[in-house]
Computed example of a mutant assay.
Amino acid sequence: MGPGLDERSSGGSHSRWHVTRREALVALGGAALAASTGPSKTTMAADRSRDGLVRVRVYPGRVPFPARVRYGLDDLRRDWPTPLRDALAAIEEAFDQVLAYARDRSRLESVDIRVERGAPIRFPPASIPLSIDAVLPSLRCLLERFRDRIRSRNALTGRCCHVLLEWSPLNYRIGYGGTLAPHSITGEADGGDTGDAQAVVNVGATEVWDSRPVTRAMAIHEAMHTFLPDDIVDAIGDAVCDHELGTAVRTDAETLEVSPMATAYAGPDRIGGGTRFHGTGCCDRSRFYRHDGTDGIDTWTYTTELSEATCEAVTRYLERQFAIS
């Protein structure tokens, strides 16, 4: 992913956001919710992975009281309010699709993917120096804090994708979420660290600015990024970017159905072009696995069904990295 709404970068440089997005959020009173306080309630034991087992661990971030009220009284007492539970379920369903695709073709028979709940993530205020990142953290800053928390829980195993469900609807520096090198691909160690990958999904942004279907699609989108290295993507069709493994299919003359990897990238590059904000990562719609065009489209729908190209790419990576020969 390129920097912005959906960021993934192999380098350490920081690219600028689209001014239109920044101005839109600032004009609407953009100031991010401050990071939540208090240490985590539980400490997770080290993950003792067996051969062939890959874990995707999903963690709830802090959802503020006013947001919880929107989803009913039951959610006031839970670490997993409804949008976060739906995001988790979507991620689990997506990996079930990958395994079903592979096993229909007698592949990945030695690999199991386990999607599980992690303990809530909270960032103690003492760990956040007084700066803009204390109020409006960048994606890199948030990912670094997230890694510090999971490292303190002794939860790094070398074969786990850790996904944080964040609630920061006004933080344009995070956008819809993302992942960054050197911890962007599950199972690939870099610089002597473990091969655990991390991703952030800004559920607050998708819920406030878009819809629950977009929340589900973006949760899948960010988790799948960590199983799609560049060399695998390059070998699938015309794609040179993992967003191009997605699809945008006309279901009638005025409706386009968008798959998870194409979410935030299938529409025109403007506010309201499908999702409220357009992704600023890599994308060329002419190279999508399938894109039926946007002329005459006024209704956008979002599916949790992965494209065949996405399933194939993730299957190839799991075969290479985790299958037992």
Rank of each mutant, 00 (worst) to 15 (best):
E93R: 13
E244V: 09
S15V: 10
R50D: 14
E92T: 14
F95A: 07
L5H: 02
G11M: 01
D112I: 13
T251Y: 08
G30E: 11
E305H: 04
Q198F: 07
L84K: 07
G52K: 02
I297M: 06
G237A: 04
D210N: 08
R114L: 10
P124H: 02
M218P: 14
W300D: 05
C311L: 09
Y317K: 02
P182Q: 01
T251S: 09
T82P: 15
Q321C: 07
T303L: 05
V115N: 05
D96S: 11
Y172F: 12
V233H: 13
S9H: 13
R22F: 04
G191K: 03
D96Y: 15
D210K: 02
G272A: 10
V26M: 08
P83V: 07
V56E: 04
P120C: 01
M44Y: 12
G175M: 00
S138W: 01
A87K: 03
D6Q: 00
D112A: 14
V63A: 03
A24W: 11
A32F: 14
A323M: 01
H243S: 08
E144D: 15
F288N: 01
S259R: 02
P169L: 00
G61Y: 04
A27C: 13
R16M: 06
V58D: 05
A87N: 06
L99D: 14
Y176F: 01
A248T: 04
T304H: 12
T186P: 03
L318K: 06
D269H: 11
L5I: 02
C283E: 05
G38C: 06
V258P: 09
A217L: 02
L25I: 15
L143K: 03
Y176R: 00
E305G: 00
I185M: 05
R68N: 06
I232G: 11
A205C: 10
R68H: 12
W167Y: 05
G237K: 01
V98W: 10
P60A: 00
